[in-house]
Design a protein around this nucleic acid. Sequence first.
DNA 1: CCGTTATCAATAGTATTACTATCATTGTGT
DNA 2: ACACAATGATAGTAATACTATTGATAACGG
Lengths: 230, 230
Amino acid sequence: MSSVNIIIEEKYYSKDPQSSDLGRKIISESIKMLDQMGYEEFTFKKIANQISSTEASIYRYFENKHKLLLYLATWYWSWLEYMIDYRTHFITNKEEKLREVLKIVCHVESMPESVSASIDLNALRRLVQIESDKTYLTKHVDEINNQGLFMGFKSLCHKISEVILTINPSYKYANAVTSMLLETSHQQAFFALHLPSLTEISKDSNITIETQVYDFVQDTVFKLIENSKK
Amino acid sequence: MSSVNIIIEEKYYSKDPQSSDLGRKIISESIKMLDQMGYEEFTFKKIANQISSTEASIYRYFENKHKLLLYLATWYWSWLEYMIDYRTHFITNKEEKLREVLKIVCHVESMPESVSASIDLNALRRLVQIESDKTYLTKHVDEINNQGLFMGFKSLCHKISEVILTINPSYKYANAVTSMLLETSHQQAFFALHLPSLTEISKDSNITIETQVYDFVQDTVFKLIENSKK
DNA sequence: CCGTTATCAATAGTATTACTATCATTGTGT
DNA sequence: ACACAATGATAGTAATACTATTGATAACGG
């Protein structure tokens, strides 16, 4: 587990950031900075200063900051998918398997400290929570989608849908419910922290936000898919 | 119905755009342009040119484009809330009432052509669908929230939660489910158009996307709240 | 050990954005 | 006819999101 390699396809970058020292620095520092200051404030100039490099050098790795965000988000979705495979392949009970999948998605169990040295998983997950919707909430969605850059998210979504369908093959909305729950797992945690009146999940509970989100998501999925068997 | 007045509080603007010709032009043109080119591409300079005014004049009405987006989104949430009151206050059957609320939220029935002359409701709804999450997906959420600028969305959310609670007062997640469904009603429609593999809702069906989204949302809510009665 | 290639730093430059400030002009109500 | 609020016109600034070019250095192969 100490060194898992998540491989990101070439289409996400101009030059593979995992292939050089500078590249790995860009990744680790951009995760830090995006987490701290958010996507809008983040610029290539700032990260260049931070790692004592130059704007132009960053541009050699990523076309623009949107592509960099896409790279990080995709890394994260791939990592989740990897974790799902790793932790559920031996589980035969379908419901138990789905529960384990949801636990991973909701981060009920703490993350390993480091996977690849350049990736701070906790920071990455925080930034994905806030920023990942911005990968597709743009007028360029179709263009980006045509380049196949949303495959990471789609693949994760389909993997979870399949588990749902093994439990109830006649459920009509496996993909819809999965994409809804992936989104809501971020949103509800965000609301708990910033707009608490929009959710019952509370940061002041003695149960962690992650666990509360998991409880909600799990309650929701099973009601939706079990019930429709009748 | 021909002229409903949605009143937006002062905190959203520097000068009330409904109070002058230029103001109303800013509103109607910004809706058009945001719908067409999206939030990122949209600038005060562009809108100024479009309505033959100047950047400085737009700034007299709105501090920045984020506040303008917040104004438009709030107008939209208030309008939904108004429609809910208007079309459901006489419905006594609780389930029927909830269904009507969801129809309004999902836009199953077509919108009146114009409410106030300066607001193109169909364009506004399209842009809210894509852009409204950006009102809160920023590092300034807390600041904005402290100024009370998310009241419109919260108020709508609470109104719908109340209806849910009349049906099942012991359901634990009324607000969570409402905020989830408000978000998903946009997302699923967006996915159907741009990332179709993430949802069963299809643009190629002979049922409108809006109706399909309503079917999904309605199915979901009732399963969640009825089932938990046991 | 030399030459090639790749890598990156350094520098410079452009168009656009997101503002702020100032002052002149216009139109309206009294 | 005057007062004054609303807008237009103009200018300016700091920052952003790039692109282009050059030169130094290190690695690698023959």
